[in-house]
Amino acid sequence: MSTEQQLSRQEQQFMDKIKAEEKIEPKDWMPEKYRKNLIRQISQHAHSEVIGMQPEGNFLTRAPSLRRKAILLSKIQDEAGHGLYLYSAAETLGITREELIEALQSGQAKYASIFNYPALTWADMGAIGWLVDGAAIVNQVSLQRTSYGPYSRGMIRICKEESFHQRQGYDIMLSLVNGSPEQKAMAQDALNRFYWPALMMFGPHDSESAHSAKSMEWKIKRETNDDLRQKFIDQTASQIEFLGLEHPDKDLKWNEERGHYDSGEIDWEEFQNVINGNGHCNRQRLEHHIKAHEEGAWVREALAAYNAKKQANKSEAA
Protein backbone atom coordinates (compact mmCIF):
# COMPACT_ATOMS: atom_id res chain seq x y z
CA MET A 1 0.00 0.00 0.00
CA SER A 2 1.37 3.41 -0.90
CA THR A 3 1.82 6.09 1.73
CA GLU A 4 -0.95 8.03 0.08
CA GLN A 5 -3.36 5.14 0.26
CA GLN A 6 -2.45 4.54 3.87
CA LEU A 7 -3.02 8.17 4.71
CA SER A 8 -6.38 8.28 3.08
CA ARG A 9 -7.37 5.09 4.88
CA GLN A 10 -6.37 6.68 8.20
CA GLU A 11 -8.31 9.78 7.31
CA GLN A 12 -11.31 7.69 6.41
CA GLN A 13 -11.17 5.89 9.76
CA PHE A 14 -10.80 9.22 11.54
CA MET A 15 -13.84 10.67 9.77
CA ASP A 16 -15.83 7.49 10.45
CA LYS A 17 -15.16 7.91 14.14
CA ILE A 18 -16.18 11.55 14.05
CA LYS A 19 -19.39 10.67 12.24
CA ALA A 20 -20.16 7.92 14.75
CA GLU A 21 -19.75 10.50 17.59
CA GLU A 22 -16.81 8.57 18.99
CA LYS A 23 -14.16 10.62 20.78
CA ILE A 24 -10.71 11.10 19.33
CA GLU A 25 -8.11 10.31 21.99
CA PRO A 26 -4.51 11.58 22.26
CA LYS A 27 -2.92 8.41 20.85
CA ASP A 28 -5.32 8.14 17.90
CA TRP A 29 -4.22 9.21 14.45
CA MET A 30 -5.54 12.66 13.54
CA PRO A 31 -5.03 15.03 10.62
CA GLU A 32 -2.33 17.59 11.31
CA LYS A 33 -4.80 20.42 10.73
CA TYR A 34 -7.22 18.95 13.24
CA ARG A 35 -4.42 18.87 15.81
CA LYS A 36 -3.37 22.46 15.07
CA ASN A 37 -6.92 23.69 15.07
CA LEU A 38 -7.49 22.09 18.47
CA ILE A 39 -4.30 23.51 19.94
CA ARG A 40 -5.37 26.94 18.75
CA GLN A 41 -8.82 26.66 20.25
CA ILE A 42 -7.91 24.94 23.53
CA SER A 43 -4.96 27.20 24.22
CA GLN A 44 -7.02 30.30 23.44
CA HIS A 45 -9.54 29.03 25.93
CA ALA A 46 -6.83 28.34 28.54
CA HIS A 47 -5.27 31.76 28.04
CA SER A 48 -8.70 33.35 28.45
CA GLU A 49 -9.12 31.72 31.84
CA VAL A 50 -5.69 32.93 32.91
CA ILE A 51 -5.94 36.49 31.58
CA GLY A 52 -9.49 36.62 32.91
CA MET A 53 -8.06 36.42 36.44
CA GLN A 54 -6.73 39.96 36.04
CA PRO A 55 -9.89 42.10 35.81
CA GLU A 56 -11.41 40.21 38.72
CA GLY A 57 -8.18 40.09 40.67
CA ASN A 58 -8.26 43.86 40.31
CA PHE A 59 -11.25 43.91 42.69
CA LEU A 60 -10.18 41.23 45.17
CA THR A 61 -8.60 43.78 47.46
CA ARG A 62 -11.61 46.12 47.13
CA ALA A 63 -14.59 43.77 47.38
CA PRO A 64 -17.21 45.62 49.44
CA SER A 65 -18.02 42.79 51.86
CA LEU A 66 -16.11 39.85 53.27
CA ARG A 67 -18.67 37.45 51.86
CA ARG A 68 -18.23 38.84 48.34
CA LYS A 69 -14.46 38.79 48.74
CA ALA A 70 -14.54 35.11 49.69
CA ILE A 71 -16.80 34.23 46.74
CA LEU A 72 -14.62 36.18 44.32
CA LEU A 73 -11.48 34.45 45.60
CA SER A 74 -13.12 31.11 45.15
CA LYS A 75 -14.19 31.98 41.61
CA ILE A 76 -10.74 33.15 40.58
CA GLN A 77 -9.26 30.02 42.08
CA ASP A 78 -11.61 27.97 39.89
CA GLU A 79 -10.54 29.93 36.85
CA ALA A 80 -6.88 29.26 37.44
CA GLY A 81 -7.87 25.61 37.82
CA HIS A 82 -9.70 25.69 34.49
CA GLY A 83 -6.62 27.19 32.89
CA LEU A 84 -4.65 24.29 34.27
CA TYR A 85 -7.02 21.56 32.94
CA LEU A 86 -7.03 23.23 29.56
CA TYR A 87 -3.26 23.57 29.35
CA SER A 88 -3.08 19.88 30.23
CA ALA A 89 -5.62 19.04 27.52
CA ALA A 90 -3.56 21.02 25.01
CA GLU A 91 -0.40 19.24 26.15
CA THR A 92 -1.91 15.91 25.12
CA LEU A 93 -1.62 17.22 21.56
CA GLY A 94 2.16 17.36 21.75
CA ILE A 95 2.88 20.93 22.83
CA THR A 96 4.34 22.09 26.15
CA ARG A 97 2.96 24.63 28.58
CA GLU A 98 6.10 26.74 28.09
CA GLU A 99 5.43 26.88 24.35
CA LEU A 100 1.82 27.80 24.95
CA ILE A 101 2.76 30.61 27.34
CA GLU A 102 5.38 31.87 24.95
CA ALA A 103 2.77 32.02 22.18
CA LEU A 104 0.48 34.01 24.47
CA GLN A 105 3.18 36.45 25.45
CA SER A 106 4.40 37.00 21.89
CA GLY A 107 0.84 37.76 20.79
CA GLN A 108 0.78 34.78 18.45
CA ALA A 109 -1.95 33.06 20.48
CA LYS A 110 -5.11 34.92 21.45
CA TYR A 111 -7.30 35.14 24.51
CA ALA A 112 -10.91 36.30 24.70
CA SER A 113 -10.98 39.93 23.66
CA ILE A 114 -13.57 40.69 26.35
CA PHE A 115 -10.73 40.91 28.88
CA ASN A 116 -9.32 43.89 27.04
CA TYR A 117 -12.20 45.90 28.49
CA PRO A 118 -11.46 47.48 31.87
CA ALA A 119 -13.20 46.43 35.12
CA LEU A 120 -14.02 49.79 36.67
CA THR A 121 -16.63 49.38 39.38
CA TRP A 122 -17.83 46.67 41.71
CA ALA A 123 -20.84 46.17 39.42
CA ASP A 124 -18.41 45.02 36.75
CA MET A 125 -17.74 41.97 38.91
CA GLY A 126 -21.44 41.25 38.63
CA ALA A 127 -21.59 41.91 34.89
CA ILE A 128 -18.50 39.83 34.18
CA GLY A 129 -19.81 36.85 36.12
CA TRP A 130 -23.30 37.10 34.72
CA LEU A 131 -22.62 38.08 31.08
CA VAL A 132 -19.05 37.02 30.35
CA ASP A 133 -19.20 33.72 32.19
CA GLY A 134 -22.77 33.38 30.94
CA ALA A 135 -21.68 33.69 27.31
CA ALA A 136 -18.77 31.35 27.98
CA ILE A 137 -21.13 28.72 29.40
CA VAL A 138 -23.40 28.78 26.35
CA ASN A 139 -20.33 28.01 24.27
CA GLN A 140 -18.89 25.48 26.70
CA VAL A 141 -22.10 23.52 27.13
CA SER A 142 -22.00 22.90 23.41
CA LEU A 143 -18.30 21.99 23.63
CA GLN A 144 -19.02 19.18 26.08
CA ARG A 145 -19.83 17.24 22.89
CA THR A 146 -16.64 18.27 21.09
CA SER A 147 -14.91 15.43 19.25
CA TYR A 148 -11.58 15.51 21.12
CA GLY A 149 -11.85 13.39 24.30
CA PRO A 150 -9.64 15.34 26.75
CA TYR A 151 -11.22 18.66 25.71
CA SER A 152 -14.73 17.28 26.03
CA ARG A 153 -14.07 15.85 29.49
CA GLY A 154 -12.43 19.11 30.59
CA MET A 155 -15.52 21.01 29.45
CA ILE A 156 -17.84 18.77 31.43
CA ARG A 157 -15.93 19.56 34.63
CA ILE A 158 -15.60 23.23 33.81
CA CYS A 159 -19.30 23.70 33.02
CA LYS A 160 -20.29 22.62 36.51
CA GLU A 161 -18.19 25.36 38.07
CA GLU A 162 -19.03 27.99 35.49
CA SER A 163 -22.71 27.84 36.29
CA PHE A 164 -21.83 28.79 39.88
CA HIS A 165 -19.82 31.69 38.50
CA GLN A 166 -22.68 32.97 36.45
CA ARG A 167 -25.06 32.70 39.41
CA GLN A 168 -22.71 34.62 41.68
CA GLY A 169 -22.43 37.37 39.04
CA TYR A 170 -26.18 37.60 38.69
CA ASP A 171 -26.51 37.62 42.46
CA ILE A 172 -24.19 40.65 42.68
CA MET A 173 -26.42 42.40 40.13
CA LEU A 174 -29.54 41.50 42.11
CA SER A 175 -28.10 43.00 45.29
CA LEU A 176 -27.22 46.17 43.41
CA VAL A 177 -30.58 46.68 41.73
CA ASN A 178 -32.30 46.15 45.07
CA GLY A 179 -29.97 48.62 46.75
CA SER A 180 -29.56 52.39 46.62
CA PRO A 181 -30.13 54.46 43.45
CA GLU A 182 -26.34 54.78 43.12
CA GLN A 183 -25.96 51.01 43.24
CA LYS A 184 -28.66 50.53 40.64
CA ALA A 185 -27.01 53.10 38.38
CA MET A 186 -23.73 51.26 38.81
CA ALA A 187 -25.43 48.03 37.71
CA GLN A 188 -26.96 49.70 34.64
CA ASP A 189 -23.63 51.20 33.66
CA ALA A 190 -21.88 47.84 33.91
CA LEU A 191 -24.60 46.17 31.84
CA ASN A 192 -24.30 48.88 29.19
CA ARG A 193 -20.55 48.45 28.93
CA PHE A 194 -20.45 44.63 28.96
CA TYR A 195 -23.54 43.59 27.02
CA TRP A 196 -22.25 44.16 23.49
CA PRO A 197 -18.73 42.89 24.12
CA ALA A 198 -20.34 39.74 25.59
CA LEU A 199 -22.24 39.21 22.31
CA MET A 200 -18.96 39.62 20.45
CA MET A 201 -17.49 36.75 22.46
CA PHE A 202 -19.26 34.31 20.12
CA GLY A 203 -17.07 35.55 17.30
CA PRO A 204 -17.93 36.94 13.86
CA HIS A 205 -21.08 35.99 11.96
CA ASP A 206 -20.86 32.47 10.54
CA SER A 207 -20.38 33.87 7.04
CA GLU A 208 -17.29 35.78 8.22
CA SER A 209 -15.76 33.19 10.53
CA ALA A 210 -12.36 31.95 9.38
CA HIS A 211 -12.24 28.67 11.29
CA SER A 212 -15.89 27.71 11.51
CA ALA A 213 -16.60 25.41 8.58
CA LYS A 214 -13.77 22.95 9.14
CA SER A 215 -14.27 23.01 12.91
CA MET A 216 -17.92 22.08 12.41
CA GLU A 217 -17.06 19.27 10.03
CA TRP A 218 -14.58 17.85 12.53
CA LYS A 219 -17.06 18.41 15.32
CA ILE A 220 -14.57 20.47 17.28
CA LYS A 221 -17.33 23.07 17.28
CA ARG A 222 -20.84 21.73 17.60
CA GLU A 223 -22.95 24.81 17.00
CA THR A 224 -22.32 27.91 14.93
CA ASN A 225 -21.36 31.30 16.34
CA ASP A 226 -24.69 32.82 15.38
CA ASP A 227 -26.78 30.00 16.87
CA LEU A 228 -24.90 30.18 20.15
CA ARG A 229 -25.17 33.96 20.22
CA GLN A 230 -28.92 33.72 19.65
CA LYS A 231 -29.27 31.40 22.65
CA PHE A 232 -27.44 33.89 24.79
CA ILE A 233 -29.48 36.85 23.57
CA ASP A 234 -32.69 34.94 24.30
CA GLN A 235 -31.74 33.88 27.81
CA THR A 236 -30.31 37.26 28.75
CA ALA A 237 -33.36 39.29 27.70
CA SER A 238 -35.56 37.92 30.48
CA GLN A 239 -32.74 38.19 33.01
CA ILE A 240 -32.35 41.89 32.25
CA GLU A 241 -36.08 42.34 32.59
CA PHE A 242 -36.11 40.58 35.96
CA LEU A 243 -33.37 42.91 37.21
CA GLY A 244 -35.50 45.86 36.15
CA LEU A 245 -32.67 47.30 34.10
CA GLU A 246 -32.94 48.93 30.70
CA HIS A 247 -31.91 46.68 27.82
CA PRO A 248 -28.84 48.09 26.04
CA ASP A 249 -30.17 46.91 22.66
CA LYS A 250 -32.89 49.36 21.62
CA ASP A 251 -33.77 47.21 18.61
CA LEU A 252 -34.39 44.05 20.59
CA LYS A 253 -37.78 42.60 19.69
CA TRP A 254 -39.45 39.24 20.14
CA ASN A 255 -40.05 37.49 16.83
CA GLU A 256 -43.01 35.18 17.23
CA GLU A 257 -42.38 33.41 13.96
CA ARG A 258 -38.76 32.53 14.69
CA GLY A 259 -39.37 31.93 18.38
CA HIS A 260 -36.33 34.11 19.10
CA TYR A 261 -35.44 37.71 19.76
CA ASP A 262 -34.40 39.85 16.82
CA SER A 263 -31.59 42.14 17.80
CA GLY A 264 -29.68 45.19 16.68
CA GLU A 265 -26.44 44.89 14.75
CA ILE A 266 -23.20 44.48 16.62
CA ASP A 267 -20.58 47.16 16.09
CA TRP A 268 -18.05 44.96 14.32
CA GLU A 269 -15.74 47.87 13.79
CA GLU A 270 -15.31 48.16 17.55
CA PHE A 271 -14.81 44.39 17.75
CA GLN A 272 -11.98 44.52 15.23
CA ASN A 273 -10.58 47.64 16.81
CA VAL A 274 -10.27 46.01 20.23
CA ILE A 275 -8.96 42.72 18.83
CA ASN A 276 -6.35 44.68 16.93
CA GLY A 277 -4.93 46.14 20.09
CA ASN A 278 -6.88 49.33 20.68
CA GLY A 279 -8.81 48.20 23.74
CA HIS A 280 -8.13 49.85 27.09
CA CYS A 281 -6.28 46.87 28.47
CA ASN A 282 -4.70 44.89 25.62
CA ARG A 283 -1.17 45.96 26.44
CA GLN A 284 -1.74 46.01 30.18
CA ARG A 285 -3.01 42.39 30.30
CA LEU A 286 -0.02 41.02 28.41
CA GLU A 287 2.48 43.18 30.27
CA HIS A 288 1.02 42.03 33.58
CA HIS A 289 1.35 38.40 32.53
CA ILE A 290 4.88 38.86 31.23
CA LYS A 291 5.94 40.76 34.35
CA ALA A 292 4.63 38.07 36.70
CA HIS A 293 6.28 35.40 34.56
CA GLU A 294 9.62 37.20 34.51
CA GLU A 295 9.50 37.98 38.21
CA GLY A 296 8.85 34.30 38.82
CA ALA A 297 11.81 33.12 36.75
CA TRP A 298 14.20 32.91 39.70
CA VAL A 299 11.59 30.93 41.66
CA ARG A 300 11.21 28.37 38.86
CA GLU A 301 15.00 28.16 38.58
CA ALA A 302 15.31 27.62 42.32
CA LEU A 303 12.70 24.87 42.20
CA ALA A 304 14.54 23.12 39.36
CA ALA A 305 17.91 23.46 41.11
CA TYR A 306 16.50 22.15 44.39
CA ASN A 307 14.86 19.18 42.69
CA ALA A 308 18.07 18.41 40.81
CA LYS A 309 20.04 18.44 44.08
CA LYS A 310 17.54 16.12 45.74
CA GLN A 311 17.63 13.83 42.73
CA ALA A 312 21.43 13.74 42.79
CA ASN A 313 21.43 12.94 46.52
CA LYS A 314 19.00 10.13 45.91
CA SER A 315 21.11 8.56 43.14
CA GLU A 316 24.19 8.90 45.32
CA ALA A 317 22.45 7.10 48.16
CA ALA A 318 21.25 4.35 45.81
Partner: peptide, 18 residues
Protein backbone atom coordinates in the same frame (compact mmCIF):
# COMPACT_ATOMS: atom_id res chain seq x y z
CA UNK B 1 -4.71 37.89 47.71
CA UNK B 2 -2.41 40.48 46.13
CA UNK B 3 -0.51 37.53 44.65
CA UNK B 4 -3.43 36.23 42.62
CA UNK B 5 -2.44 36.41 38.90
CA UNK B 6 1.11 37.32 39.93
CA UNK B 7 2.49 33.93 41.01
CA UNK B 8 5.60 32.36 39.44
CA UNK B 9 3.35 29.76 37.75
CA UNK B 10 -0.30 28.92 37.59
CA UNK B 11 -0.32 26.32 40.37
CA UNK B 12 0.91 29.01 42.74
CA UNK B 13 -1.89 31.36 41.75
CA UNK B 14 -4.30 28.61 42.76
CA UNK B 15 -2.49 28.02 46.04
CA UNK B 16 -2.43 31.72 46.88
CA UNK B 17 -6.13 32.14 46.14
CA UNK B 18 -6.81 29.10 48.28
Amino acid sequence: SEWVSRGPFLEEDIAYAN
